[in-house]
Write a protein that binds this DNA or RNA. Structure first.
Length: 485
RNA sequence: GGCGGCGUACCCAAGUGGCUAAGGGGGAGGUCUGCAAAACCUUUAUGCGCCGGUUCAAAUCCGGCCGCCGCCUCCA
């Protein structure tokens, strides 16, 4: 038993063994802060947030590092477009990023280094690479010579010769080989620049991750992650830089999340087929997005649409409805019976639940199966409550069931609200133009009608609310409202 | 052209050698209810893109074919 992780490097699921006992060091490539994040970024953030939460749940200590790329061509371009300074652009979108992540329930990693805060570390690695003969300077630029690194291509499973055939981009004449990549770029007039032994310039993209992972996690660490589009060339280049510079292995397990697609095509800025996180959260509760994304294994592509999110809403509603039922159960609980066979049966289901959850998550973070187990328990719980249990054992089992669901769902950071918060949130995201006090007022009016057996008026009130998207449920001790999903 | 991946019901989706192919949504019927809603029960793939092969046994392994996607350029 124990955790197994699919390692992009080997192409297989491997038993996870951290280098240091009980402590995991993990580095994930973060975002370039030049624009608002889209749902694709949300997926990556949520996937690795969940992985880190599960590692902690599994009693590992975790040092999770996720960087910000805060200097880059796209930032400079954006700054020019908006007539701002490049660092203002980076700062603005870093703030926006935090706002999105906080709403998505993505926890901040232990360390969130910025590229511009690690220029000295990068220069040191570059100098080492030149000394060791892996890099060369050419007119103020410094390039990494991929041909010098024998293992180049092992992560992305490709070799230089076959890539040559498919090359689609003009070769920079300063490069010795087409796939050599910039460690250091000479600055043009007016561009941000740092001093270096090779003149004023700025870092290439890949070097920052080698520098920051080394500084915060050491030469060799456990997990390196990111979106699948980073496998080549970004992660391949990181490996080349880090291994050549240190002479040691780099990351042991490589984890890559799959893409979000729209009409079967990868969601991306360049194709323009993206939804920002913000757009989506205007219409859907963050938990809906989270459940939707975690209902598919992290490596598989996800076809994104509003319809799919709409389909996800009732499944959350099912959980919150059950929680509400449990609250009512406790409110009116009176011990009346001895433990029965049924009580024992349910108790058994509850007691084995966590093992099933762990089994699913241990299998390469199978969140989809884990969520399915939660729904299984929800059904069992409802079935049990239908039987009106009234023993002391039943009270304890129901309490434990809820506690277990909360704990395990907490690892996925879903189902964290109270039912009341959930319905209020739906009122908001569904754009329903009626307030809770107004709903309560109508419920009172309807209660009077029902007491007078004025079914016509009672039904009329219910229909009025129904048309607005509010459902009423008559319970033994009163009427409650829900938002129709 | 090279490399990688995917194809499971009306929709989403787990399962990668062996009990009746998870779970959610939707549909149909029922129990409950003043009527509803919720919940529960029954039902909705003798079937896992197609064709062969290996095996006592395959959605799961192998080969071929079809379809879709990704990477090879910045990208989560």
């Amino acid at each position: 038993m124990g955790l197994k992780i699919y390692n992009t490097m080997s192409g297989k699921k491997e038993v996870f063994v951290p280098i240091k006992d009980n402590h995991v060091r993990m580095y994930v490539c973060g975002v370039t802060v030049y624009d608002l994040c889209h749902v694709g970024h949300a997926r990556s953030a949520i996937v690795f947030d969940t992985i880190s939460r599960y590692l902690r749940f599994s009693k590992y200590g975790v040092t999770f590092v996720k960087n910000f790329t805060d200097i880059d061509d796209k930032i400079i371009t954006r700054a020019a477009e908006e007539g701002k300074r490049w660092d203002e652009v980076a700062e603005t979108y870093t703030k926006e990023y935090y706002e999105d992540m906080s709403r998505l329930g993505v926890a901040s990693p232990e360390v969130e280094p910025k590229a511009t805060g690690h220029i000295a570390e990068m220069l040191k690695i570059i100098a080492t690479l030149i000394d060791k003969g892996y890099a060369y300077e050419a007119g103020g630029d410094v390039f990494y010579e991929v041909g010098k690194f024998g293992d180049y291509g092992t992560l992305s499973k490709r070799d230089l010769d076959s890539m040559e055939a498919g090359a689609r981009v003009e070769v920079d004449p300063k490069k010795r080989n087409h796939f050599d990549f910039a460690l250091w770029k000479k600055s043009k007039e007016g561009e941000p620049a740092w001093d270096s032994p090779w003149g004023a310039g700025r870092p290439g993209w890949h070097i920052e991750c080698s520098a920051m992972s080394q500084k915060h996690l050491g030469d060799t660490f456990d997990i390196h992650g990111g979106g699948a589009d980073l496998i080549f060339p970004h992660h391949e280049n990181e490996i080349a830089q880090s291994c050549a510079a240190t002479g040691k292995p780099f990351a042991r397990y490589w984890i890559h999340n799959g893409f979000i697609t729209i009409d079967k095509e990868k969601m991306s800025k360049s194709l323009g087929n993206f939804f920002t996180i913000r757009d989506i959260l205007r219409e859907f509760d963050p938990e809906v997005l989270r459940v939707f994304l975690l209902s598919t294994h992290y490596k598989s592509p996800i076809e994104f649409s509003r319809e799919s999110l709409r389909q996800t809403e009732p499944s959350l509603d099912r959980v919150y409805s059950t929680v509400l039922r449990v609250e009512e159960f406790f409110k009116s609980f009176k011990e009346k019976t001895q433990s029965s066979e049924e009580d024992g049966h349910f108790s058994g289901i509850v007691n084995s639940f966590k093992d099933r959850f762990i089994e699913a998550m241990d299998d390469d973070f199978n969140t989809a199966a884990a969520i399915a187990h939660i729904f299984d328990l929800i059904r069992e719980l409802n079935r049990y409550l239908d039987k009106k249990p009234a023993s002391l054992q039943s009270k304890q089992s129901v309490a434990k069931a809820i506690e277990q669901i909360k704990e395990c769902a907490g690892v996925l950071n879903i189902f964290t609200k109270t039912p009341h918060q959930w319905y209020l949130a739906l009122l908001e995201t569904h754009g329903i133009q009626i307030s809770e006090p107004e709903i309560e007022e109508l419920i009172t009016k309807r209660r009077e009608a029902r007491q007078n057996k004025d079914w016509k008026l009672a039904d009329e009130i219910r229909n009025t609310l129904d048309k607005m998207g509010i459902i009423l449920e008559d319970k033994v001790d009163g009427t409650i409202w829900k938002v129709k999903v």
